[in-house]
């Protein structure tokens, strides 16, 4: 197990530009803190408050921070679907058997993600984030439209969040685990979107949709445009053609905090 989650947040390898804008903050702090797993958890807890926004809980730094960030998102999704299952739309008489099955599945998947992340954090002596208190007061759980719209928001947000968090993960094992989850979130998002507006499983709000020119010769596609030897800027919602609009943790949490009660709102100061 200890190989899966490193017992202490790993310093990102010397990235030439890192020292320029993070001169003396958390990363260099860890450089000198050859802490044990337990001590690291304490360090994380201590660090969280220093550079987080007032009134928010910072998810922390390093892989532990990203795992807790994922745990927070999964807590929120699981809480949402649990509430869907007790709400008027799900329990009413108009819902189809197919949609009921879909929400049963979604509720299970997200609860499994949540419990998996918590167990994995604990198994690696990383203190899990507290149980968050959601605030779904803006959602009418008796309305199919509102439930589906909110589900789409949570699923699309989850995909953009995992995609934008990948670059901050040091351990390949953790990156692989995130990859196993994010594609399931994308499956959810696509189906909810199709239920709301058929054929919108991909649309320009979540994917940088691309319209190719017709190839000059049938059966040949050489690509087009000026080859750009670096990928387009990532994490700013403006990726390369045909790609999901990944977003960085602070951007995601700005939206997510609307669904969290005071005292449970989050920040991610280390992952700008």
């Amino acid at each position: 197990m200890s190989t899966v989650f490193p017992p202490e947040p790993q310093l990102r390898e010397a990235d030439q530009d890192q020292p320029l804008y993070v001169p003396i903050k958390r990363r260099s702090f860890f450089m000198y803190a050859g802490a044990t797993a337990g001590a690291t958890a304490l360090v994380l807890a201590g660090c969280s408050k220093s550079d987080s926004s007032p009134g928010t809980i910072d998810v922390g730094a390093g892989d532990a921070g990203i795992l807790n960030y994922a745990y927070a998102l999964e807590q929120l999704e699981a809480a949402f679907y649990a509430q869907v299952k007790t709400g008027g739309y799900y329990t009413g008489s108009t819902i189809t058997a197919a949609e009921k099955q879909i929400f049963d599945d979604l509720a299970l998947h997200e609860a499994i993600h949540r419990d998996f992340l918590k167990a994995a954090l604990q198994a690696n002596s990383i203190t899990p984030l507290k149980d968050l208190t959601p605030n779904f007061s803006s959602i009418d759980f008796g309305s199919r439209d509102q439930v589906l719209a909110a589900a789409q928001t949570f699923e699309d947000t989850g995909v953009a969040a995992y995609n934008g968090a990948g670059r901050f993960i040091t351990s390949n094992a953790n990156l692989a685990l995130a990859g196993k989850i994010v594609s399931v979130e994308a499956r959810h998002a696509a189906l909810i979107r199709d239920l709301r507006s058929y054929g919108k499983f991909v649309d320009s709000d979540v994917v940088n949709t691309f319209s190719p020119s017709a190839p000059a010769t049938a059966g040949v596609y050489s690509g087009e445009g000026t080859p750009n030897s670096t990928p387009n800027t990532q994490g700013n919602g403006n990726p390369g053609p045909g790609q999901e609009r990944s977003k960085r943790p602070p951007q995601i949490l700005q939206a997510v905090n609307n669904f969290l009660a005071d005292g449970s709102k989050l920040s991610a100061g280390s992952f700008a």
Binding site: V159, Y162, N163, G164, G166, R167, G179, V182, S183, V184, E185, A186, R187, H188, A189, A190, L191, D194, F201, V202, V207, T230, P231, N232, T233, Q234, G235, P239, G240, G242, Q243, E244, R245, S246
Partner: peptide, 21 residues
């Protein structure tokens, strides 16, 4: 290659959306 990784992740989720459809 962090930018390339993120581009690949952003393609990966689109493939999953296609598959769902």
């Amino acid at each position: 290659t962090k930018d390339i990784l993120e581009a690949a992740l952003n393609i990966h989720s689109v493939e999953a959306r296609h598959n769902s459809h």
